[in-house]
Design a protein around this nucleic acid. Structure first.
Length: 180
DNA sequence: TACTGGATTCACT
DNA sequence: GTGAATCCAGTAA
């Protein structure tokens, strides 16, 4: 799995679709990702303390706090460049009751259909930041296909002049990739 | 040292 | 469709 993250970021973002993220007893299949490299919208465009992980590692967990309230889960990528893949949505698989409790939501659809939602459901915070994939946050090969269309219910909140990152998601049994 | 604004979500109209 | 919540990394001075 470590070599998987050495690939270029777009390949990693696409390859993550269908894989399963597990944190403790909770798990979900990745159904939407977003690729960030050195474009205007990416933290990786400049080397800072925060973005150093994107520059210097691959296969590591990159978590940041957004709007002072929500955490976003990324995996760093690209052995020879700068990159990270944002996990935008999951299809809940296991530990659904616990995830509902954390989210205070009854609807399966709303449980992990957004970057801030899934970190809340899986209890992912800054404590996971910098760890290697496979430590607290485990990635497994998926052995099923998504049963329902679950993609992030909100638009990407990137300022207009920054351009838009590549997005990958599953719709039906189809893998879709598009810019923006 | 002091702003500024964001890879979001939710409640409300 | 609109606006508020909330905090810290990045930036400018």
């Amino acid at each position: 799995m470590h070599n998987f993250f050495a690939q270029d970021t777009l390949a990693v973002a696409m390859g993550l679709l269908g894989k399963v993220v597990r944190v403790g007893e909770c798990s979900g299949m990745i159904v939407e990702t977003e690729a960030y490299t050195t474009d205007e919208a990416s933290h990786g465009r400049v080397l800072t303390e925060r973005s150093r992980l994107m520059h210097e590692t691959f296969g590591h967990v990159y978590v940041y706090l957004i709007y002072g309230m929500y955490h976003c889960l990324n995996f760093t990528s690209d052995a020879h460049g700068v990159g990270a893949v944002l996990i935008r949505s999951l299809e809940p698989l296991e530990g659904i009751d616990l995830m509902k409790e954390r989210r205070r939501k009854a609807s399966l659809r709303d449980l992990t259909s957004g970057p801030g939602k899934l970190t809340q459901a899986l209890d992912i915070t800054m404590k996971e930041h910098g760890g290697g994939v496979g430590e607290g946050i485990v990635l497994e090969e998926g052995d099923t296909v998504p049963e329902q269309d679950i993609i992030a219910t909100t638009r990407i909140g990137i300022k207009k002049d920054a351009g838009l990152p590549w997005r990958f998601y599953v719709r039906g049994n189809e893998f879709v990739s598009r810019k923006g």
